[in-house]
Simulated assay, not measured.
Amino acid sequence: MDERTREYLRGRFGDHYRRSSITPPPAANEREWGFIPWTEGPGETMVRHRSLLDLGNVEDFLARKKPRHIYFSAGRYDDPSASTMSDKGWRNSDLVFDLDADHLPSVVLGEDTYGEMLAKCKDALMRLLDFLDDDFGFEDTTVVFSGGRGYHVHVRDERIRGLEREARREIVDYVRGIGLEFDELVEVETVAGTAGRSSPAEKRTLPTDGGWGARAHRHILSQFDEWLAMDEADAIEALQRYDRIGEGKATAALNAARTNYEGLEAGNIDVHSAVYQIAQVLAQEVVAADNAPIDEPVTTDTNRLIRLPGSLHGGSGLEVQRLDRDELADFDPLSDAIPETFRGHEIAVEVTEGGLVELDTADHGGDSFTVEAGNQTVPEHVGVFLMARGRARKAQE
């Protein structure tokens, strides 16, 4: 990034901060703070091991220093400004989750556009929140758009803040479905023998009221609903695509599901051995479809630095936004995260990497458009985005 571009962005970030209201995280004075200034050269230099006492008022600091990025720690310490982690005196940490579109299995880098990547990341966010709300029952959660490629979720329930790395790793494994075994989801009940059998039998069911068992049950029931609605010959053919399911087992599974549908709906996957075998296979699909592909090191790291909501992301010029739950469905980061400071103006830039721009712009009806390489006059928020991402330089007006 050349000097003119860097100084322009630094100045406009400062303009944004002078007109913004920033709410620090709880216990802000117990946290480590760090920031990345607009330094010369291609690299970035992190300044960390700062306390709120060092920074002063956060809003004043941002308006004065105009940093490219600013972070605070998930951890709370006795001495947050100590120069080594061992000297800080760790007390406890928020539980932080990071969803990064670049790391999602469903994202195809080089094919998916930025907007498509963010949409897939939002889908993953909703699955993560389902785990945090329904499976764990966390109450103090904060959802944040990262300003870049995804979302952060901060959990500050007092009962989990003292968890150390290994305990946090177990939470990671759960939401990602790592090591999930089908037999561990199944509830086994001993029941009286049926006619002609004097010995007790075992009834195997999947729970329908929550957790991975309920997720597996929903998927299994949905798949059988689809097969039962098909022409039988087509359904039998579809079932035979599964390993070790021949025509006989496929036919038996369909007949058992049809005649014992209420039992299957109630979670009884033992209505026939073929149904149980197919259920085992279908359960493996659930992990791939319903897991939350979080960035594991972020959650397990009790000392992690995370972006400050209300700040600007130096790689996009978009705002790191704290989001209310009722806003999530309609939230569009490519429009809603554009700072008001950068709206309503046009600037001259030299585009060095042309191509698609998906930011909302009134000049293009809110639709994506293509910018050509060379000198261009564009809406300021588009220019800031392109410059922050290294796709343009500031041109002389």
Rank of each mutant, 00 (worst) to 15 (best):
P200D: 05
H49D: 15
D60N: 13
K88G: 03
S20R: 12
R19G: 12
A238E: 14
A392K: 07
D324S: 14
I294L: 03
E327G: 09
N260C: 12
S199F: 13
Y151D: 11
E358Q: 15
E340N: 02
A167N: 10
N375R: 15
A329C: 00
H154L: 05
A288Q: 11
S368A: 15
G34H: 03
F385K: 08
D234S: 12
V281F: 07
F138D: 01
G354L: 09
E358S: 14
R64W: 04
D336K: 11
L52E: 05
D112K: 02
G354R: 07
G246L: 07
L386H: 01
T142S: 13
G354M: 05
T300D: 01
S83P: 07
F131H: 02
L318N: 03
D135G: 00
E7I: 09
P293D: 08
D79E: 13
I22S: 04
D140W: 00
L334S: 05
K249T: 04
G211M: 09
G315F: 03
L239R: 02
R64L: 07
E327H: 08
A395S: 12
F342S: 05
E319R: 15
A388P: 00
A229C: 06
G211N: 10
G89L: 13
R215C: 00
T194D: 14
F136Y: 15
D157F: 07
D231S: 09
G147W: 01
V107N: 11
H313L: 12
P80N: 11
R244Q: 13
E3Y: 11
A373Q: 14
S51M: 09
E44Y: 07
Y174D: 01
N260A: 13
M230C: 13
S199I: 05
E296R: 14
G137Q: 00
G314A: 07
L55Y: 09
E202F: 06
Y17L: 07
A201T: 09
G355Y: 03
T142K: 12
R176S: 11
N255Q: 09
L62I: 07
D330K: 14
D360S: 11
T5N: 12
G193Y: 01
D330F: 11
R64D: 10
W212Q: 00
V47T: 13
V287G: 04
G150I: 05
